[in-house]
């Protein structure tokens, strides 16, 4: 696999959307290519930082109870 092809597939690799065969090909390329590995690290890290940052909002307890009463 060439670096360009690896780059094209990186979003789907990070999102676990490749087929097993495709994922294995990307994985093998990453293990032998430090540049692409760093690129992968960054994309994976960005995804985790976005999730961690946006994940902390939860519905207020009073709102949850209000909804439960409305829906029952």
């Amino acid at each position: 696999m060439r670096c360009e092809e690896c780059s094209d597939k990186l979003d789907r690799f990070v999102d676990r959307e490749l087929t097993n065969t495709e994922a294995l090909e990307v994985q093998l390329h990453l293990e032998g290519c430090p540049d692409c590995m760093e690129h992968y690290d960054f994309q994976e890290h960005l995804k985790r930082v976005v999730k961690r940052s946006c994940d902390c909002d939860v519905a207020p307890t009073a709102f949850r109870e209000k909804l439960r009463q409305i829906l029952s």
């Binding site: 760093e38 960005l46 930082v49 940052s53 902390c56």
Partner: peptide, 18 residues
């Protein structure tokens, strides 16, 4: 490593960017 920079950015700024 480039990813270190991401850890220095406050969560509120990431939310703001989203």
């Amino acid at each position: 490593p480039e990813a270190d920079v991401l850890d220095k950015i406050a969560a509120s700024e990431v939310v703001s960017a989203v």
